[in-house]
Each structure stands twice: as structure tokens, then as C-alpha cells.
Amino acid sequence: MSRVMIFGATSAIAQEAARSFAKDGASFFLVARNQTALADIAADLKVRGAQSVATHIADLSDLDSLSGLCDKGRAALGGIDVALIAHGILPDQKACETSVDATLGALRVNALSPAALMIRLGEILVAQGSGSLVVISSVAGDRGRPSNYVYGASKALLSVMGEGMAFALGRAGVNVLVVKPGFVDTPMTAEFPKGALWASAKSVGEEIAAAVRKGKRGIIYAPFWWRFIMLIIRFAPGFIVSKI
């Protein structure tokens, strides 16, 4: 049964991916900030079939603590089969535009922290000679847009780093997977139809779990057809992108 470590375990997509792994009887080491939310998720995963669930409260913007955290998770699980990096915030773009601190703060949580984790987890998995390292990026990282370029830049870093690591670590038997979701609906109102571009956190989470089971590596879009939308957007001339 797989041993799964999740950073940002209270994110909706991470939760759904975890439920999918729980059905197969996985063991978990979950990291997040909010104690009650984490305890609720742990209980939920146990009922859904998880073998065991350990939780750890941490502030993932504390970069110095991240290496230790990875080691703790590995020790608790006795090895890592899947590491999922799912934390991130949607920064206040307007505030960032006139504040260096706000921008660096956002990049710290969304880019530096996952990057630090990717390096350390990469090391652990390579030493093991197996495992999947999954990072949740976004289609927003494929092109800079006027309305969210700080968020987009943080995701661009993850995408490029993940893509490179996928090539590099593939040789050592480690699957690095970058997931780029499109518009994801909050689970709170997922029942209401909203149009074709919206996907539920549940479907994205299940796609991630399925990709991991198949041993995929590299970049996947969720749902897959965002690849084609983004292909068009990447080649669109600047005067169009400046308006979206």
C-alpha cells in the first residue's frame, strides 16, 4: 500500500486526491496550518479506507524548517511513495503591484517553499530509487497576464522546475509530475452547473491520483484539454493576452 505525504493537505484538490489514495488503503503524513481542518480530514480519510493518518501542523513559509519536515515524514511513513505539494495562496495582485514585501511574501509561499520541498524530496526519492513527486501548478503559469502575474510567475517557476526535474529524476526511477489545473470550482458549490470550463476539485484530484498510479511524469493539464487552450493562448499575440 502506498505511503503518501501531502503538503497543504487542506487544499480542496489535495483532499480529493487523498480520498482517492485512501480507497486503496494508503498511509498518510499530512501537513497543513489549520489544526481542526487537518483533524477533520484525517478522520475522513480513515473512514474512507486509509491505513493510517499522521498529521503535522506547520507553517510552510518557514523555509528553514522544510528539510526537517520532509525527513520527519519519511521516518513516520517508513519511506515515501507519493509526495504531493499542494499549498499555495492566491495573492492580492493589486496590493503586490505597489508592495515589494507583499510580492516577495507571495513568492515565498507559492514558489520558494515548494521549490525547497521539491529539492529535498527529490533527493529522498532518488536515494530510494522510486516514488512520485507531484506539484500542483496552474495554467496561469503558462503566460503572464495583467490581472495575476505574481501568482502566474510563482506557478511558472514550479512548472519549469518540475519539468526539468522530471527529465533529470526520471533516469533514477522517480516520477516528477507537474499538474496544471484550469478553472477549479470550490467544493462548496460544485453541484451547480457553471459552464464547460469549470472542473470540480474532485475530478482534478482523481486525475492526479490516476496519473500517479500510472506512473506518469512531466506535465499534465487537468482536464487534459486545457493543454490545447493554453497552446492557443501561448501563441496568441500580446495585444490579445493584455486583455484577458
Binding site: D40, I41, A43, D44, V47, P187, M188, T189
Partner: peptide
């Protein structure tokens, strides 16, 4: 909308009592 309240809380497989 309550669908976001979708977590199980406990399930006793002996007694069949389930909390969600």
C-alpha cells in the same frame, strides 16, 4: 449550499454506527 460539508467523522464497523 451544504455539499462542502462532505467529511466522514467516524465509522464503527462492528456496530454499524456512522457519523458524517
Amino acid at each position: 449550499a451544504t455539499r462542502g460539508l462532505d467529511r466522514f467523522i467516524s465509522f464503527d464497523k462492528e456496530s454499524g454506527e456512522i457519523a458524517c
